[in-house]
Structure formats: structure tokens, C-alpha cells
Amino acid sequence: MTTQTGPETRITRKFAELKAEGRAGLVTFLTAGDPTPELSEEIILEIAAAGADLIEIGMPFSDPMADGPAIQASSLRALKAGMTLPKTLDIVRAFRKRDNDTPIVLMGYYNPIYIYGVDRFLADAKEAGVDGLIVVDLPPEEEGELCLPAIKAGINFIYLTAPTTDDARLPKVVRHASGFVYYVSITGITGTKSADAGDVAASVARIRRHTDLPVAVGFGIKTPDQAAAIARVSDAAVVGSALVGIIAENRDPSGLPLPDTKDKVLDLVKALAAGVRAARD
């Protein structure tokens, strides 16, 4: 078992709080700029108040290989609406003006960061108030690219582990992980199959034999009940495709968001948060 020594951030403080409260956290995922940069910012500004304990913000990419149709479509909507990496950081800055406690994790693929410039990106992300990074296509084999520089910059680099990550490989994956470990509960892409809580419990226990970091579980969690079931056996439940799906469904024929889109997204967040909070009562 590895005792983690990564940067102290809002993420590490939040998980310490959750532990003290004796409950798991809710992590929400939305793609920055979906369906428009303006509405996306409005939703994210209110998402913590609706019950998100950690906020994951997707950095849109043209070719999101590990994502299912819902997240792919959200990336393309955001790009079409003119979303960029600098504008994503602007949303983080706007959020930080009103909330200096809720952790923010940026999630995406490496190429836009590489093109922006790794050092410049880390400096700007830190200044904007980003606490952690999940970069799907940077496994530990490529840790020199961004993981190690991020740790130096005081940002947590969060690794994904999958059902295919066996006991022989886990130590390599968690070696430089910090903040939390993200367990991908299915072998597949986001928003498709649903995880079985029993399998998840066993997998989380297996990961905990290798690290003392909190374990968040995602991919395939859509309803408050599923979130509650995952919250019973892990440190946080991540919900993405279901929230993004609401944005996709609530658009007029020209693709513009319907007036109550924000409320509908926040209503699901509230329901998910209630599920997660009640899970261990």
C-alpha cells in the first residue's frame, strides 16, 4: 500500500471533510461550453449549491476516444458554440469568485493541453483555481508529459483505474496519483453499460489494498438510486452522461437550449446529492 504524498488542494481537504461527515461525495461532470459558453457557465456556477461536492469540467475535444455518444456529442456542441481551453479556464475563474472551497477537476484529452503548452497551461490552471486534472489518454507510461509537472505545480493528477487494471499493474498506476483515484466501473465507454454495485465494492476494496487515496467511481451511474448504491461502497460517485443527456434533450430544433434546461440539470444534481447523502444513513 502506498501512502500518498501529492499536493494539498481543495480536493484533499474536501475528502477529509466528507470522511469526517461519514458520507461519500457527489462528483458531477459537465462539458465546458455545452450547450453554449454562457449557459454552461451559469449551470456550473450553481452546481455546488445544488449539491455537487466536487466539480468535474470537461475540456472539449474533437476526438474523445474513451467517451460514449452522449459526451462526444456534448464536446462537439461546445466546440461548435466556440468553446476553447482559455474560455474553460474563464469559467473556473468565474466560479472561484463565488466559491473558494469546492474542488474543480478538469477532465479531457492531452492534445489541446499539449498545443496550449504544458507549463503555461499548469500555471494558468493553478491561477484560475483548478485543483486536479484527469487526462484520459495519459497513462502512467507517459507520466513525464503532464503528471509529474502538474504535481510540481501543486495540482493533483488523478489516474483512472479500470477493471482491466490488475493487482500487478495497480501499484504503477497509483504511484504518482494524488487527490483521489477514479475507478472506471465498466470496461467500456462513458454512459453505456451500468455498473453492478457488488462488483464495484470488490474492486474498490482491491484498489484500497494498494493506496490510501479516496476512491471515486464513475462510468455508467445515471440515477439517484445507482449513485446511492455506489456511495455505500466508495468515497464518491461520479455522474456525467446523465447530466449531459439533459442538456442534449432540452434544445429547440435549431439547437438552442430551452429556457428550463438549467433548472432540469440542477434538479437532477439535487436528486443525486440527496441519494448520495442518504446512502449511509
Partner: peptide, 20 residues
């Protein structure tokens, strides 16, 4: 050994694929 031709090449894939 890690699949690089100087800076090119490599293994930039999701963890689910990495063991494969």
C-alpha cells in the same frame, strides 16, 4: 523500449486499453 522515436510515438491511450 517505451515506443518512442525521439518525441514521436508512445502509448497515449486510456487505462482501460493499456493492459491490452
Amino acid at each position: 523500449e517505451s515506443g518512442h522515436f525521439d518525441i514521436y510515438g508512445g502509448r497515449y491511450v486510456a487505462e482501460t486499453l493499456m493492459p491490452l
